[in-house]
Design a protein around this nucleic acid. Structure first.
Lengths: 150, 150
DNA sequence: TCGAACTGGTCTTAAAATAGGACTAGACAG
DNA sequence: CTGTCTAGTCCTATTTTAAGACCAGTTCGA
């Protein structure tokens, strides 16, 4: 059966997952943040089937997360680069990274880490209140809109 | 073919997506943050097939994101609640929400919003450097470990 | 300048995942 | 005791995925 979609949901989380919540899209975006640009680079680095990659890249371009530009090396080929909307996914990738680091590796198990320009490990993502005070989950709640179709 | 997995990857993003990067898991987690606890509540709210929900809940329990506890209303049934590891997914859900809010709704289109205890809308997630200065994507890079299998 | 190899795909196929619904055992309410 | 609710299991049709064969245009090396 066709996979259920959430494109019309009121909840931004549902819409976001509908757009980029499949098995590959965020890994492609992660690789794009890592500097990968070419079809073949993504394909080799991810080990993804070419047909899948074609479909995913096309969807990400349609969504406006990636755009195709002429290759930077002067060849006749094209490259895929993050748009502004794509760059806005940075916190999503970082939050997944930080959760993974803290919860999916054994103590001492090596993994890649995110560092700043000085090579220092970055801190944890912080959710500030309007006044700038850090908020935990229990300090927040979701204000729903009047129910529509869902 | 069997869906490609990333359980052994060096990259925490890949492992995180392997664990919770399917179409339903994060929506279940979102609903759990929203206070849903019972099988039937998740099923009704998400419109998910029961077989899917059974499989996803089981996987989330195995992962240690959810745990089953005796129902809080004194009945003989069970409930699913977030563990500490599950609560740690809060920034992931929030980052998806904020990206969705900013990029997937037309201007003026209504959507649910995250507010603090005073009902004020929360700010954007911030990634601080070790010293506490906010970092953008371009201020960071990924330090890889010595290449293994992938 | 010619052929070989590279790039960026398309197409086909088999296996696996999903949606949807029928069915069921035990709990609960009247 | 009986009907309904809960939390599932199981089955089937359809879609998605992985994997690889194949292909046209581009670039490279001699």
């Amino acid at each position: 059966m066709q996979r259920t979609g959430f494109a019309g949901a009121d909840c931004p989380v549902a819409r976001a997952l509908d757009a980029i919540g499949d098995w590959w899209s965020l890994l492609i975006v992660r690789d794009a943040f890592d500097g990968l640009r070419r079809f073949g680079d993504f394909q080799k680095n991810l080990g993804i089937a070419k047909g899948m990659l074609t479909a995913r890249l096309r969807k990400l371009v349609e969504l406006g997360v990636l755009e195709q530009v002429a290759a930077s090396d002067g060849s006749a080929y094209q490259e895929y680069v993050l748009t502004k909307k794509g760059h806005a996914l940075f916190p999503v990738v970082v939050s997944l990274r930080q959760w993974g680091e803290a919860n999916l590796f054994a103590r001492g198990e090596p993994h890649s880490v995110l560092v700043d320009a000085q090579g220092e490990r970055v801190g944890q993502l912080v959710l500030p209140s309007k006044a700038g005070r850090p908020l935990a989950w229990s300090d927040t709640k979701v204000r729903k809109v009047a129910a529509r179709k869902r």
